[in-house]
């Protein structure tokens, strides 16, 4: 069994969503995570706030937000257990952020101590 990070990239919700939509996303996210947890494959996860986001660059240059030219940036990640990359991809496919055009979920294997 391996561990994978599913990294969600999407737009800043404050710019696009109504309270009702945010509530719907929340329910969908909980159902998505609940479905993975029900298979005992969920390890951990967190959202990442867009508010007050900063990037520290080479030469200690600090900018507001990691966003640059692209609108989609990391909004959160969860760590799941899976037997294969394919299984982790199947989990990723259910992620509600994929409903948004331009959004994506990156699937990355977690490096092990004694790989």
């Amino acid at each position: 069994m391996e561990e994978f990070a599913l990294i969600m990239r999407h737009e800043d919700g404050a710019k696009v969503a109504s309270p009702e939509q945010i509530q719907q996303w929340m329910k969908q996210t909980m159902d998505w995570i609940g479905g993975i947890a029900a298979q005992n494959k969920f390890t951990n996860g967190t959202g990442l706030s867009f508010e007050d986001a900063k990037v520290v660059k080479h030469g200690n240059m600090i900018t507001n937000g990691p966003f640059g030219d692209i609108k989609e940036t990391i909004g959160g990640l969860i760590i799941v257990k899976a037997d294969s990359t394919e299984e982790a991809i199947e989990f990723a496919k259910g992620c509600p952020v994929l409903q948004g055009e331009g959004n994506s979920v990156e699937v990355r294997k977690i490096a092990k101590k004694n790989a």
């Binding site: 969503a17 929340m26 508010e51 969860i78």
Partner: peptide, 14 residues
């Protein structure tokens, strides 16, 4: 108000 709900979205599911 909007930012408050986003904070919930970023926290409650996890």
């Amino acid at each position: 108000a909007s930012e408050t709900f986003l904070a919930a979205l970023e926290t409650w599911p996890y």
